[in-house]
Design a protein around this nucleic acid. Structure first.
Length: 294
DNA sequence: ACTCGTCAAGCATCG
DNA sequence: CGATGCTTGACGAGT
């Protein structure tokens, strides 16, 4: 029997709670940073309460948790001033919640770019994400997920560059995880990279359907050694253009993923539900699954 | 009181 | 070669 723990991210379905409070860069001061951060921290705990109530086992913290933390105008001493709040928050999480915390930097984080400044910015962004999780005292299963990046006219070299850049920054391997995307790098290609680098591979079913390849599902599990319960992304197509996340998740898409996983004999997986209706989508899916299983 | 365009960042694709 | 989509909250300008 396969047990599934569900996950949600960043905000509540009603839009009232978010860990992405921010402001415009032209207004950057420590006071503005602290103001947004405190709002994010407050909503973070409300969201953790919501997860507890709904039986949600994974939460992805928004990248704007500390706005502009990797920007060149952001002073490093500001992080030290926020550190005590994060340590306190981390203790609270450990005491009161049993939840996995992960992060997922935006599309600007590109580790295989041929442009040195893009790579440097990406490393700074990842360093910030790692610092947040480290300071909160999050364990090894607190992964930071990114995509492989661009192709730049030569996919083979783009992959080599990704591998070299991670190898030259070994600290990345502590939390880095990589995901297949809907246009460029297929599940097969990302899985190969993950095996080479010994970082976990996060399989996204919707991306795989838009950008298909052949791969072994058993190989995915091996990449998770020591990095917690294998994590997958599930979403359904929204109306209109392809690639847009739907409001909810179809139980057909869920069943498709489960069929892939079932044969492997795995006991437990984490399923990040990427749907606009967030916890409501999880609730609805759980109700639909009950019907399927009975 | 509201709607609308703009904002740190990268990439590929489309016209 | 310039605009657009990915994604999302804040905010200032305009109505």
């Amino acid at each position: 029997m396969l047990y599934i723990g569900f996950g949600t991210f960043c905000t509540s379905a009603d839009g009232k709670l978010t860990t992405n409070h921010t402001f415009q860069i032209k207004n950057l001061t420590f006071e503005k940073v602290q103001e947004s951060f405190q709002a994010n921290l407050r909503d973070f705990f409300s969201l953790l309460d919501l997860c507890k109530k709904e039986g949600i086992e994974v939460f992805r913290l928004g990248s704007n948790f500390i706005p502009y933390a990797s920007h060149s105008l952001f002073r490093q001493e500001w992080l030290s001033r926020l550190e005590p709040y994060l340590i306190e928050a981390g203790d609270k999480i450990k005491q009161n919640y049993n939840i996995r915390i992960t992060m997922h930097p935006g599309q600007f984080t590109v580790l295989n770019s041929p442009k040195i400044e893009v790579l440097e910015n990406s490393l700074r962004e990842l360093k910030y994400h790692f610092w947040v999780l480290d300071t909160l005292g999050i364990g090894q299963d607190g992964i930071v997920i990114i995509h492989v990046g661009g192709i730049y006219g030569d996919k083979k070299r783009a992959i080599e560059r990704f591998i070299n850049n991670v190898d030259e920054n070994k600290w990345l391997k502590k939390r880095l995880a990589i995901e297949n995307d809907e246009k460029m790098f297929t599940a097969q290609e990302v899985l190969d990279i993950a095996k080479t680098l010994e970082v976990p591979f996060v399989f996204d079913l919707l991306h795989h359907k838009l950008n298909p390849s052949r791969f072994s599902i058993e190989e995915i599990f091996k990449t998770w050694n020591g990095k917690g319960i294998p994590k997958f992304h599930l979403s359904s197509m929204g109306k209109g253009k392809k690639g847009i996340h739907g409001e909810y998740v179809n139980s057909e898409d869920f069943m498709e993923l489960i069929e892939m996983l079932k044969s492997t004999g795995l006991k437990k997986v984490h399923l990040m539900i990427e749907a606009k209706q967030k916890e409501r989508a999880i609730k609805r899916l759980k109700e639909q699954i009950e019907i399927h299983y009975r």
